[in-house]
């Protein structure tokens, strides 16, 4: 049997599909159309929401391949790696794309070894070349270069793409496709790792990955006290707080809020950034933000090159004016 079709690895939480599952379908649809093959969404979980599975078809999948078992209720390395490996062995997809989330970045590298193929992490671009190979583009060396990578011989060709680096397709309820449940040998669901508890993040500072508005600060804030102005603006604008690597290293904000190559990639509708010079590492994390406003002391700062609106000046003077204006508007309405 030869390798055929494009697969996306969906992700779920408590039976509901996560947004990244739909984002991946847009990438997958483009590849499947170019290869003139089917797009198959893979879902592992337990008590999966039927309407959500149907939505995968509305958002671009031709087929949904589901493995439903109590052991797959939430992500655990062993059963997830075993099941994805088994599905690949059974059906031989030509291309498998995963999201570069904590789950995707854990499952995919193990599966790649098991099925003996290459994997390219954190791709920003995926395409098909004239010979039908998957062309994978990714930033490397701290975002200093873009590397284009191929997996010439081994199959499937595997890649992960940054979450929220693209929107899903528009919903199309006229699309049809089949949802297939696959039985899996119980032996493959055994795990040497088990979950004892889960502590959800406090909502206070917001999850930056899904935020529409992000207010971020960096080293230029100088002190933790002044960084609080960033937090205040975020509260006033109902946004999440982000930080550069320096802000996180200085302890002004925790690591889950770090934006950039070694933190999170974000694509909010609005990104306000103050006191961040704009090292390539940081810029790589905000490329897909829709509207960027930057505030920095240095007119030569890199951050201004990617900003839609820039203010050069002392953030100690500028941020309080913004805060006041936001408060006025709030009271006015």
């Amino acid at each position: 049997m030869s390798y055929k079709n494009v697969w996306t690895l969906s992700e779920q939480e408590q039976g509901k599909l996560k947004e990244v599952s739909f984002e991946l379908l847009k990438r997958g649809r483009a590849l499947a159309d170019k290869r003139k093959v089917e797009l198959v969404a893979i879902v592992l979980g337990h008590n999966l929401d039927k309407d959500d599975l149907q939505k995968l078809i509305y958002f671009g999948a031709d087929k949904v391949l589901v493995v439903d078992a109590p052991e797959l209720e939430y992500f655990l390395t062993d059963p997830y790696v075993n099941v994805v490996t088994k599905l690949i062995e059974n059906h031989k997809p030509e291309i498998l794309i995963a999201s570069a989330t904590t789950t995707g970045r854990t499952v995919a590298p193990a599966v790649a070894i098991k099925v003996n193929t290459g994997l390219t992490a954190d791709c920003t671009g995926l395409d098909i070349d004239d010979e039908g190979h998957l062309i994978q583009t990714r930033p490397a060396i701290g975002g200093n270069i873009l590397a284009t990578i191929k997996t010439p011989i081994h199959r499937p060709q595997m890649a992960s793409v940054r979450p929220h680096s693209n929107q899903p397709l528009d919903i199309d309820k006229s699309r049809t496709g089949e949802i297939v449940y696959e039985e899996i040998d119980k032996e493959l669901l055994k795990s040497r790792i088990k979950r004892i508890e889960f502590h959800e993040n406090e909502e206070e500072t917001g999850n930056i990955q899904d935020a529409e508005v992000i207010i971020a600060g960096g080293k230029g804030c100088k002190t933790e006290e002044k960084f609080k102005m960033i937090k205040e603006i975020a509260t006033l604008m109902h946004g999440a707080v982000g930080g550069s690597r320096e802000a996180v290293d200085l302890g002004w904000i925790s690591y889950p809020h770090q934006i950039g190559l070694s933190g999170q990639t974000v694509s909010p509708h609005f990104y306000l950034v103050a006191g961040v010079s704009g090292a390539v590492q940081h810029l790589a994390g905000i490329k897909t933000a829709e509207n960027i406003v930057a505030i920095n002391n240095d007119s030569e700062a890199q951050i201004f090159q990617v900003a839609d609106f820039g203010i050069q000046g002392d953030l100690n003077d500028i941020l309080p004016v913004i805060i006041n204006k936001l408060k006025e508007r709030k009271e006015g309405k």
């Binding site: 290459g118 390219t120 284009t148 090159q305 900003a307 000046g313």
Partner: peptide, 25 residues
Amino acid sequence: SPTRVVRISKPKVSRNGELFVCKND
């Protein structure tokens, strides 16, 4: 190695937004 780097390029990010320079209040 299953993967091959076939090309290396420099990333470009530029939006050319407006810049307002502030010297006073």
